[in-house]
Design a protein around this nucleic acid. Sequence first.
DNA 1: GCCGTTTTCGGCCCGACTGTTTTCAGTCG
Length: 580
Amino acid sequence: MDKSTICDILDEVGTLLELKGENPFKSRAFHNAARVLAGVTDDMSTLVDGGDIRKIKGIGESTAKVISDLVKTGKSPDHESLKKEFPSGIFDMLKLQGMGPKKVAFLYKKMNISSIDALEKAAKAGTLGTQEGFGKKTEENILQSIDQFRKHSSRFLINAAEKAAQTIFDDVKSLRGVIRAEIAGSLRRHKETIGDIDIVVSAKKNYVKLIMDLFTSHASVERITGHGETKSSVVLISGINCDLRVVDDAEFPFALNYFTGSKEHNVRMRSLAREHGWTLNEYGFNILDTAEKRSKGKKPIKCSNEPDIYKALGLQYVEPELREDLGEIEFAKTGKIPNLITYADIKGTFHCHTNYSDGQNTLLQMAEGAQKLGWDYLGIADHSKAAAYANGLSEDRVRKQIKEIDALNAKFKNFILFKGTEVDILTNGDLDFQNKQLASFDYVVASIHSNFKLSEVDMTKRILKALKNKHVTMLGHLTGRLLLDRDGYAVNQIEIINAAADLGKAIEINAHPMRLDLDWRMVKYAVSKGVMIVINPDAHVVAGLNDVRYGVGIARKGWCKKNDVLNTKSLKKILNYLNK
DNA sequence: GCCGTTTTCGGCCCGACTGTTTTCAGTCG
């Protein structure tokens, strides 16, 4: 059993203990153990066999037993027996905003409610509001949370989707009879959030059935939702839907193009095809079937790959990341698609947490990970003390960390760790560290982590005040929340961007924790104002090594050129494109 | 349940908000 599954189960045990109403410190111990284990890089079997698992701080007798059972047998009796006490729908209920273990357990025990559907029914019938501790308002909030959950729960952040897709894609690609295989859809376009994974394959006719059978019976498949001759759909263990489409090799470029999207881009492509007297679909070009068009239409050229399709339409090749109908067709018509920045251009990132606060890895591990990626630097920005829930650093611990960074830097060649902080913006706009302390850092990320419900005017004031502090380099994960006026915090976006432009500060943007994509109109506006933008698809950057390339940052003005400001592959590409 | 010790039990993260109730419990970040 792999480590991440073990961590998930430890977390689940913690949650089940909460539901049972056990001593909160007991359940926390399991959550802690999951967090600690996530940061361990040693081989699980070796740790268990050698007994070293107990030497890890945070893993005690009981948690070690669960881990060792899972490693040795794939099952933990402790976990299994706890699980029997609650139906699985309970875990969905816990995902609702405002629903914690106490309420969920109460509703289950008192009203036998164990699913979101049942909860909705009770709330609509008005039977919830009569329960002790529940009122009209709670009922309304629950219905709203259910609405939210249904709208957004089906999307996944790109790093999770990429991880889920890799194994099954690699295995499908290497199946006998497969000629060409590509991941399509929003994953190929590197969107911040992914609805489902699309795999397009071309294969020899007599192998198609076998490919479909092997796909639907793959080890990472949880259940099959469709199994046909050209298309099969499954739900992966990770919860993500995955579709496989098999086509003739001649159709492959068209299928790949069609299923890569976006829908808006496809619409433009098809209308361009009509201008040439053709139709375009997932199988190929066809001559438009009207006398008028037929006279105008030439026979479309043969396309053996995707670039050929663009060529046939008189377009420069458009990279998947740009296919959003945000002006890329116009650029392609005049051959002005810019050279896009890639991972190889990334020199380092700045919003990274370590196990000093709520990250998973040590300073050394993070530095080694960054060097392995070929980076020149890494910026460390752990939480400040106000973020107590994230084990934020006191002034004393900052001093300790800075010392450790200095010692590490003395040993590195052609690599440097920058000393930063993610300082909390307090309710009144003051920062969580004194200016003297802030001056000790190479750069400062200032973020809001509390009091999200201020009025728009007050929230804007609060952020502007923080932004004006001369030590602040960048606003942390700001627009990730201000995207939404509904359940994010209300703020005047334009005013913030304008101020950042005047002050020469950067803004960091996240995909929203509720799994919404970025508001590109605002990104465009910020870029047009020359505000340096940092985008991070993982809304809460607890950058373990796996996630490090998704956490991206910006340097203090003066020692980082604008072109050094780098993001994830796709986002960076788009920013560069918008800049032209 | 785990840790750390002033070694065998006390402390473990906390402030703010919400909705309920009328002083507080539950949830969130």
